[in-house]
Design a protein around this nucleic acid. Structure first.
Lengths: 344, 344
DNA sequence: TTGAAAGCGCTAACAA
DNA sequence: TTGTTAGCGCTTTCAA
């Protein structure tokens, strides 16, 4: 076995340049107070040896304790919404010279804790989270010890932190009211786990719209805990084969919408939460509740970096807009629509 | 200003439990040779103070030097293919108790170097890369110093590392031959930058299929460097308004396919590289070259961890399968098709 | 302008 | 079984 050649250290550079490690440190970090000629010798030694500063050792000693690393916990990076959040977060972090550690909770509160513990053990400066568990109080200790936290997309009840979300409740209430206005009274709801804040809100919005129209909510038309397109396809098939099937369906997010579309019969109205690439090109085009994941994540990342750099103002809740985009699928008339004139 | 309360250290736990830090270290790391009663006292102190081991300091001193962190550099996490790669990588890393640092090159060789430098400065144990630049020799120094490297999706010419890819050349040659067999002789090609290995291969496959059929390649039908759906939409519109427009188009990846679909007239045949969620539900359904990003990334991650844990066998190149899935759009007949019998 | 000494929080090696 | 000493690679502090 060959022994693994280790990377050069400051002391190697110092020896090569004939100076002390302190001088090397000053040159490597671009500090003033080094004679130009000395600096040039050090720089030459750095190049010759291929020296690169060890940020792990650096972080251990520095006064500001900053790792220039943040932790991003999403539900699942493969989800297009979460991918957009991750991409935007990484972009802001990169611009600020930071790196992003990424972890997925996959809607598992246990995994969520593991991931967050692994982040804090690595001394991240801050966390951007899409929380799963209803109760996030376990984060308080990290918070009081200086780790900055921002929630994005999903709020964390019981935790007093900056939060960037949309009005999920209002957006779904509006969408369901839209379906009701088009004559629907039996409307299906397909969502992920209710404990997830967004889906709790979306389900409440659904119920509120029904209630406002004097429609009794039928639990047979509601499915929670759907995690994949396949889950959603099975659920909508089941709901549609009920004795009194729905005439309209709401899919709680993009991934679920994909599954619903694969099996939804023509004639059933459909609205999806989240806009997606081909929504306008399907037959019929899909009416959606659009939100902007890039704007959400960008706002969250800016908030986080402000906190890391000393902003101690009270926690803020930023609510970003949503837009109901009617494209056709959400405007398919239901049995109660005015276009079908009742005969007497 | 209030001073930031710092997290407890081993010495705090040691003081609380009335033992030395070494004993705390043993308990925290679950090592044998601590009296049960002592261990219990330490454990109680850990709980009371909410102690969490500092992995940064730990890594600095440990003999194996492992950070239990790997770096993943993708082109752009928002791209569904890359998101799937990231998700699968994170999943394998999580199972092995590792974390993932994520960075995006966004097809910029300069940014690529920055990201990789930031990874190695943080002493990652290994790198999983989708390289951009044609020349990756700058990675050799990191490699000789012990950082394990695996390329996924894209190979890195000039670098002798494990690589997990598909046969891009063969897959596109087959797809373009498929279009030719359906009577097309003027076929458009839309791809990202040619320097990116995959797109170089895909373009070569395109040319090879034309050549095998005795068709002269027309540069007016080819566009490189497309980075978004909007880019692709503009490019295909331009190509179609040429004097002799193509009767078929190949989109080099999923993101470009979205843009093409938005503007492609019915009647123009279409094949996309990468399968995507709604491909089968468009009108006409989209014929695709399917590959499995999860399988690619899983294989790459396993290779990387084997290397990190001492596998020193020669670098391997794993070639995963692709599948041409005919769904309709790629079978639209062209002017030279046998179904249009030539009259004499 | 430069360097020596100390120490960040932990673990390796050894001693008791 | 427990503790002591040294040191990972760097930065801080202070002295020259």
């Amino acid at each position: 076995m060959t022994s693994r050649p280790s990377r050069p250290r400051m002391k190697d550079v110092a020896a090569e340049a004939g100076v002390s490690v302190m001088t090397v440190s000053r040159v490597v970090n671009g500090e003033a107070g080094v004679a130009p000629l000395t600096a040039a010798r050090v720089a030459a030694a750095v190049r010759k040896l291929g020296y690169q500063r060890d940020d792990v050792a650096r972080q251990l000693r520095r006064t500001d304790r900053l790792s220039q690393t943040i932790g991003l916990m999403v539900d699942n990076v493969a989800d297009p919404f979460m991918a957009a959040v991750a991409s935007a977060t990484e972009d802001i972090a990169h611009r600020r010279g930071n790196m992003v550690l990424i972890g997925s909770s996959r809607a598992d509160p246990h995994r969520e804790r593991e991931v967050i513990a692994a982040f804090t053990a690595r001394r991240v400066d801050g966390l951007i989270l899409t929380p799963v568990a209803g109760d996030q109080r376990f984060l308080r200790s990290a918070q009081t010890r200086g780790t900055k936290i921002v929630c994005v997309d999903r709020a964390a009840p019981g935790l007093d932190v900056d939060t960037v979300v949309v009005d999920n409740f209002g957006a779904v209430r509006q969408a369901v009211s839209h379906l009701i206005a088009h004559g629907h009274r039996r409307i299906g709801y397909l969502g992920d786990k209710r404990q997830i804040w967004t889906f709790g809100e979306r389900h409440r919005g659904y119920l509120a719209a029904l209630d406002a129209a004097g429609i009794d909510a039928d639990p047979a038309l509601v499915r929670h805990g759907l995690r994949s397109g396949a889950d959603a396809a099975r659920a909508v098939t089941a709901i549609l084969s009920a004795p009194e099937p729905p005439t309209a369906v709401l899919a709680g997010n993009e991934v679920l919408a994909f599954g619903v579309r694969a099996v939804l019969p023509a004639g059933v109205a459909f609205i999806a939460f989240d806009d997606f690439a081909l929504a306008a090109q399907l037959t019929p085009p899909v009416t959606v509740i659009a939100q902007d994941p890039v704007a959400l994540a960008t706002s969250a990342a800016h908030l986080l970096f402000a906190r890391i750099h000393g902003d101690t103002s009270p926690p803020r809740r930023v609510v970003m807009p949503t837009e109901l985009i009617p494209r056709g699928s959400g405007e398919i008339p239901g049995p109660g629509t005015p276009t079908r004139t009742p005969r007497r």
